[in-house]
């Protein structure tokens, strides 16, 4: 187990190394920080001096090493547009995105587990047929279209819910700019969370249904039933518990996918999160911020995946033995 963890962590470090290389290569190739710093009315000699001072004349590898060293300390350079450290800009927007992801995950868990179990237990009832059909349709609707339709129905036509922005937010513990603490903020959260969860729901309903169906066929479930254990207890305690492992693994990996989809959801709802700032950075050509987002999101993905893998290895010995050979 120890060897397995070490190997996984080593791989994670290697991947981060590659990401930082790609990030730095973009920074190196695109944009001229000197021009952004001094403007155009400065002579060539002075420009050269600034270049020398900033170390921009050093070889690629030396500059990359410097970039890596700074990145380790959390310094990913200055955003050209905000004139502030790029890490600060992204960290300030992170709570918005994370709250969106957390609320959507909550919806996914609350809806997909009962629906998935129901569809597995009564596969032939019209309701489960309808739900499974709906999940195929659900997979085929892009998340931004769901979002637009939701806005049109609930905000433009019915005026029930706000259509964009985060509403009133409150600073929690001095660092976390939260929309969960105020009624207005919560109202603003409803539509984006539903839109974001709509893309994950069909996948999880189908996964839970498939795993549940498989478990219900096994001998020990038959035995538990024969023993006369209450049907709900067989379902929840005996069967459902054993479907959790694959569900959690897929869930961990899909958490990363959800971050990708926040870019789309945030665009539709003008949600001031990381994805929104990232797209603004692309529009403005703010390479520094773009690279910071790349490294930051890359790190989130790598950490989540590594943790999921190690947890999975802990629970399921087959994984770590298979990877040894």
């Amino acid at each position: 187990m120890f060897a397995f963890s070490v190997r996984r962590v080593a791989q994670a470090v290697l991947v981060m190394f590659v990401i930082s290389f790609i990030g730095f290569a973009i920074k190196y190739a695109v944009g001229d920080p000197v021009r952004d710093l001094v403007g155009i009315s400065v002579s060539v000699e002075e420009r050269e001096k600034v270049r020398e001072q900033l170390g921009l004349n050093d070889p690629f590898v030396v500059q990359w090493a410097r970039f890596l060293q700074k990145a380790m300390q959390g310094d990913l350079g200055m955003s050209y547009f905000f004139k502030r450290p790029a890490t600060d800009v992204i960290l300030k927007k992170a709570p918005a995105t994370l709250e969106l992801v957390i609320c959507s995950s909550f919806i996914v868990i609350l809806v997909s587990i009962p629906v998935g179990i129901f569809a597995a237990v009564r596969p032939n009832s019209w309701l489960s047929r309808f739900l499974m059909g709906a999940s195929i349709v659900g997979v085929s609707i892009p998340v931004f279209l769901t979002a637009i339709v939701l806005i049109y129905i609930f905000a433009v036509e019915l005026h029930w819910l706000p259509s964009y922005g985060r509403g009133e937010t409150q600073m929690l513990w001095g660092v976390w700019d939260s929309g969960l603490a105020t009624a207005d903020g919560l109202q603003h959260l409803i539509l984006p969370s539903i839109a974001l969860s709509s893309i994950m729901l069909p996948l999880f309903i189908r996964l839970i249904r498939a795993e549940m169906k498989e478990v219900l066929e096994t001998e020990y479930i038959k035995y538990a039933r024969a023993k006369g254990i209450a049907p709900w207890r067989v379902l929840i305690v005996h069967a459902f518990k054993n479907t959790l492992l694959p569900v959690i693994t897929v869930g961990g990996v899909q958490l990363g996918t959800m971050i990708a989809f926040t870019v789309l959801t945030e665009t539709v709802f003008q949600w001031q999160g990381m994805g929104f700032v990232f797209l603004e950075a692309v529009e403005r050509g703010d390479t520094s911020l773009l690279v910071a987002y790349l490294v930051f999101v890359g790190a989130v993905f790598v950490v989540v995946n590594t943790v999921v893998d190690i947890v999975y290895g802990l629970v399921n010995p087959m994984v770590r033995i298979a990877s040894r050979s």
Binding site: Q11, V15, V253, G256, T257, I259, A260, F261, V297, G298, F301, N305
Partner: peptide, 9 residues
């Protein structure tokens, strides 16, 4: 590794 990053991203 590339798959773990999700194709969209």
């Amino acid at each position: 590794v590339q798959l773990s990053f999700s194709t969209y991203m």
